[in-house]
């Protein structure tokens, strides 16, 4: 994965987490797999509404829905969360690379300038 794709994925995980309902769903799944019905129980909202939240979490790669016929329990996939909790570690190489480029651009600019000054 390139650094930029990495950044795009992180942004998606951040967006998925920026919602209290979805955070609660994740917290429930942290205790173990659960069906959509079980996940919907504590919420005062329709099953389709809860399903939509689950879909957002699935898209961000945080939730995996099992293939076991009727139940299809949801499971937490914590790997994107590790990326978020290691946020700094992911962004650091992006910034290091940028600052390397700034450094060489600065040297290039200044050597052109000094060449321009000498007759």
């Amino acid at each position: 994965m390139t650094l930029v794709e990495d950044e795009a994925l992180l942004s998606e995980t951040f967006a998925a987490l920026a919602n209290p309902t979805r955070r609660q769903i994740l917290a429930r799944l942290a205790e173990g797999e659960a069906s959509v019905n079980e996940l919907a129980e504590p919420f005062d909202m329709s099953l389709p509404a809860v399903s939509r939240h689950i879909k957002v979490l699935e898209r961000a790669g945080l939730v995996v829905q099992g293939q076991r016929a009727q139940f299809r329990p949801c499971q937490l996939d914590a790997s994107p969360l590790e990326a978020v909790s290691e946020w700094a570690e992911h962004y650091r190489p992006i910034w290091e690379s940028r600052l390397d480029q700034m450094d060489s651009y600065l040297q290039e600019l200044q050597s052109n300038q000094s060449e321009g000054k000498t007759k």
């Binding site: 951040f14 998925a16 920026a18 919602n19 309902t21 979805r22 939240h53 957002v56």
Partner: peptide
């Protein structure tokens, strides 16, 4: 636009 009914962008 990011497919979420509520919440905040990062």
């Amino acid at each position: 636009e990011m497919g979420m009914p509520e919440g905040h962008p990062g």
